[in-house]
Every structure is written in structure tokens, then in C-alpha cells.
Nucleic acid binder design. Structure first.
Length: 496
DNA sequence: AACATGCGCAACCGCTCGGAT
DNA sequence: CATCCGAGCGGTTGCGCATGT
């Protein structure tokens, strides 16, 4: 055992791990004199430890009735910690006072570990069985091939199509037909049974722990054609025909991200969309790259330039050659990149810049074939869309499904080959709206005040940006960490 | 098998608070 | 009222074991 010591005058004070003999002396001291006057332990010559060290040892380890070291927090304890932390903040001592046998240090460490776990879940998603990462899944649930472990979140996905696509604001889970439930492994269980629904996307705008573990959904969700469940607080679950939504209500979002009149916590897309655009991820893929993998093209014909929507650092760019750095006039180290995107069957036939979204933004795409818009002067309100959900009731496009040349815009295509209108790419910082006239427009209700985010726009007060003007500034080293997309088409994972 | 990395937890550090003098 | 000092709190560090390569 390593023994550190510090010189204190003629005295040598010990530091570091406590030995059993020291513990015995300390316990005996407390028995005789009580748990106080800690400094006198040293002045009496009982232990070469500071009073502070003695107190800490007693409070955290030796005090009677403490739960033994290594005793995991129970789901009830975790729930209480989460709730109290939300109320009180990092008042660990206060929180610990409500947890018999737990010390403030226990709670603090537990919280820290939990935060890291959640972060890992978002940054290192593991993909369904059949993926190259399956062997990395060592959780108990790995025995069940239908279970996928996304770090701290375990997802039941018989179709193998479950995918974690979100990060930053919280995880998004996409489910396909046949997936029956989603569950979070932790304090609370959020479980939705789905039988007749094509796709289920769940997301939260808040951090995973804030939302996922503090709301509980009724179970099982009836598989009827229409049912609605309002969560205890701010989660609601709605099943409508072939789709089901889980949503956080604006109130929950606004608590953390105010002022905000509109939130987009989750997206529901048609099954064709989600299946055809996903591909097998590499291990340790950055979470942001994983998001992009849902939207990038699996195969691109020569000349059919179609690049990933980039949303900042660490994004995966499938083909660097197609991204040309443009000189800008700034004297700083920033380089402007614009990505172009065309598709032969799309009305969007000319190059459109889709490079956007500053780093640290959370990326998502909300689709609507019913011209759903968050802008009043654009909207054709979907009946279900009275708060923060954008619906896509698009039906399966078989042609598109079979088309090996699907690119990431494929999910924007409607059955007649035309481009789906009113596509919104959202992030809190830089939401955009692709209108029916294929103009990228800013969403005023979500505007960031940071004018630099609108590089290329004439003015942040401008109502619309031309496609070519949507350019994001990246620092020069942004692409250092990018991986080239070098896997063969056969490596692309397409859920069936 | 050896090494690297991840992870949880015990202990430390710096600071604030409040009672005693 | 000012100062000292012990107690307590929250953040951080680093050790040791587990797991991965």
C-alpha cells in the first residue's frame, strides 16, 4: 500500500488509504469522545492524520449504518437522486440526508458515474445484432439478439432496425415495424409496446437523465388504432394508425432552454425513410457521425454529388473530394465549406448547399409531406401537430426502397419522385426550413442571437436565405478527425 | 500474455460557514 | 467587531481493478 506523507513541522502526517489499524483507532476514539473535535485525534498523538482526514474517514466509511462499499444504488434511490438533483442541484449532502446509509460522497460519485454513463450512451452507440459491433456488447442483454445496448440504454428491436441517432439534446431512438418496446435501463422504465406501428421515433430535447428517468409511461400501450397517453409530467405518447409518437411537451423543454416557443423533441418518419438511410456504423463512431449515418447516401453515382449534411465538428463526410473548401475573405483560420446535393429524380435538381448548423448543435430532420410548418405563414397544420411534433404520414415507397442509388435525400422523395416539401432541419441554434419553393429559411421563433451563425445571409433579419448562402464556418482543423467513407456498398446496413 | 484503456470509488483539496473567543 | 479555527460541502484527483486489444 502506498503511503504518502506530508511534513508538518516535526510531525509526519499520513495521507492516502487508511489501514485497518488506523480505522480501529479512529473508531475507538469516536466511541470514547464522540464524532467531534477531530483535530484532537492528532494532537493527542493517536493518529498522524489531519482532523479533516479523520472526519472524512468516519463520515464516509466507518460510521455505523452506512451501506457497504460497492452496494449499488437501487432504482428507488436513483430515482430519488435524480428528482432531488433536479430540484436542489448538486446539494449532495442534502440529497444524501434523504438516503439512509448513503453519504454525500456516495451520491456525488453516483451522480458523476451516471452522467458519464449517459454521455457514453450518446457518444458510443452500439448497433443491432449483425453489426460489426455486436461483439462489443457485453451486457447481459447481449444474449438476446433482439436487444441492442446503446450504452446505458437498452433497446428491444426484433427487426434489428433500432438505431440511436441523436445526441446532444438527448437520444433519439428509431424503431421499425415489429419493434415492440423501448426501454431504458435505469431508474424508470419507459416502455412502449408497438404492434401495428411502422416506425417509432423517440427523442428528448433534454438531457437523457432529465427526461428519460423522470417520466414514466404507461404500459403496455394498447396496440389499437388510436390511443393517447399523457405522461406523469411532460411526456406524452400517441399512437395514430401506423405511427406512434413520444414527445416531450414544450414545458419540459422550456425549463432548460428558454425562451422557446417551439420545441422539436422528436420526429416521426415513415418506415421507408428510416430503414433505407441507415447503415452499419463503425465502432466508436462519434455520436454525431451516427446521426449523419442516417442521412448520408449509401451509394452515389458518379456525378451525382450528394454530400452529408454537416453539422459541425466531427461530422462524417462521405467523400471529401466532393467538398471543396472555398476561400473566404476572412483573415482568421476559418474555411468555408459548402456541400452540394442533387438527385436526378428530384425537383431539387440544382446544387443546393446543405452545409449548415454550427458545432455543438444537435441535429435532426423533421419531415412533413403535409406542409407542416412551424412558421405561421407557411403552415398547413397537421392535425396531430399542435405542439412540437412534425409528422410524416408518408406511405412506403417501394421503388425508393429497392433503389440501390438511394441517397440521403431519398427520404425526402415522395412516391412520384418529387421532393417532399417543407423539410425542416432543426437545431436550437440554427434551425432551417426548406420551404416549398426550396428556399432555406430561418425559423424566427428559434433564432439564435448570434449573427455569426448566419454567415452568408445578408442579414439575420432577412426572412429567407438563398440555398447557396447557407454556409457554415468551420475552423481549419475541423476535418482532422473525419473518417473517409470507404466501406463497400455491401457494408451498408439496410434494415429489412 | 502483456499492455492499454475504462471505470468506480476513496480520499484529497480548496473554499465557505458559523461558533467561540 | 474581528479573528481564528473546526466542520462541512462540492469539485477533483488518482489508485486499483476490470475489461478490451
Amino acid at each position: 500500500m502506498s503511503l504518502k506523507s506530508i511534513q508538518n513541522g516535526d510531525e509526519v502526517l499520513r495521507k492516502g488509504p487508511w489501514m485497518p489499524e488506523e480505522d480501529e483507532i479512529l473508531v475507538e476514539y469516536v466511541r470514547q469522545f464522540g464524532a467531534r473535535d477531530w483535530s484532537s485525534i492528532r494532537t493527542k498523538g493517536l493518529l498522524p492524520r489531519t482532523g479533516k482526514s479523520c472526519r472524512l474517514r468516519w463520515v464516509n466509511k466507518l460510521k455505523p449504518d452506512l451501506k457497504r462499499s460497492g452496494c449499488k444504488f437501487s432504482p428507488e434511490e436513483e430515482k430519488l437522486v435524480v428528482e432531488m438533483q433536479a430540484k436542489l442541484g448538486n446539494k449532495w449532502a442534502k440529497i444524501a440526508s434523504c438516503l439512509p446509509g448513503r453519504t454525500d460522497n456516495d451520491v456525488k460519485n453516483f451522480w458523476s458515474t451516471r452522467q458519464k454513463r449517459i454521455l457514453r450512451a450518446l457518444q458510443r452507440p452500439k448497433m443491432p445484432s449483425g453489426s460489426t459491433d455486436a461483439s462489443a456488447d457485453t451486457s447481459d442483454l447481449s444474449k438476446d439478439p433482439s436487444m441492442t445496448d446503446f450504452g446505458g440504454f437498452q433497446v428491444h428491436s426484433p427487426s434489428g432496425a433500432a438505431s440511436l441517432i441523436g445526441s446532444g439534446m438527448g437520444p433519439h431512438f428509431i424503431f421499425a415495424e415489429g419493434d415492440s418496446e423501448f426501454r431504458e435501463h435505469g431508474t424508470d422504465t419507459i416502455r412502449c409496446h408497438m404492434r401495428s406501428h411502422n416506425v417509432h421515433t423517440f427523442g428528448s430535447l433534454d438531457s437523457a437523465d432529465d427526461v428519460l428517468s423522470s417520466h414514466k409511461l404507461q404500459e403496455p400501450l394498447p396496440a389499437g388504432e388510436q390511443c393517447t397517453y399523457a405522461g406523469e409530467k411532460d411526456l406524452a405518447c400517441t399512437a395514430m394508425g401506423k405511427e406512434m409518437q413520444l414527445e416531450t411537451k414544450p414545458s419540459a423543454y422550456q425549463q432548460l432552454h428558454q425562451p422557446l416557443s417551439v420545441a422539436l423533441p422528436c420526429v416521426t418518419m415513415a418506415s421507408r425513410t428510416t430503414r433505407s438511410i441507415k447503415r452499419r456504423p463503425r465502432s466508436r463512431r462519434d455520436a454525431r457521425s451516427t446521426i449523419l449515418s442516417c442521412f448520408e447516401q449509401p451509394v452515389v453515382d458518379p456525378g451525382d454529388a450528394c454530400n452529408v449534411v454537416d453539422h459541425g465538428a466531427n461530422a462524417l463526410i462521405p467523400d471529401m473530394d466532393r467538398i471543396s473548401p472555398n476561400n473566404n475573405n476572412n483573415n482568421n483560420n476559418n474555411v468555408n465549406f459548402s456541400t452540394s446535393c442533387t438527385h436526378p429524380s428530384s425537383r431539387m435538381s440544382n446544387s443546393h448547399n446543405v452545409g449548415m448548423i454550427p458545432s455543438s448543435a444537435t441535429f435532426g430532420v423533421a419531415l412533413s409531406d403535409s406542409a407542416t410548418s412551424l412558421q405561421n405563414h407557411h403552415h398547413h397544420h397537421n392535425n396531430n401537430n399542435n405542439n412540437n411534433i412534425i409528422n410524416n404520414n408518408n406511405t412506403t415507397n417501394t421503388n425508393a426502397n429497392n433503389n440501390a442509388n438511394n441517397n440521403y435525400l431519398e427520404f425526402l422523395l415522395q412516391s412520384d419522385g418529387s421532393l417532399m416539401q417543407n423539410v425542416q432541419i432543426f437545431s436550437p441554434e440554427f434551425p432551417l426550413f426548406l420551404s416549398s419553393s426550396h428556399q432555406w429559411e430561418k425559423l424566427p421563433m428559434l433564432y439564435s442571437e448570434d449573427a455569426s451563425l448566419y454567415a452568408g445571409c445578408n442579414s439575420k433579419d432577412t426572412d429567407s436565405c438563398s440555398p447557396d448562402s447557407v454556409i457554415t464556418n468551420f475552423t481549419a482543423d475541423v476535418f482532422d478527425s473525419l473518417e473517409p467513407l470507404n466501406s463497400a456498398p455491401s457494408e451498408w446496413w439496410v434494415a429489412q
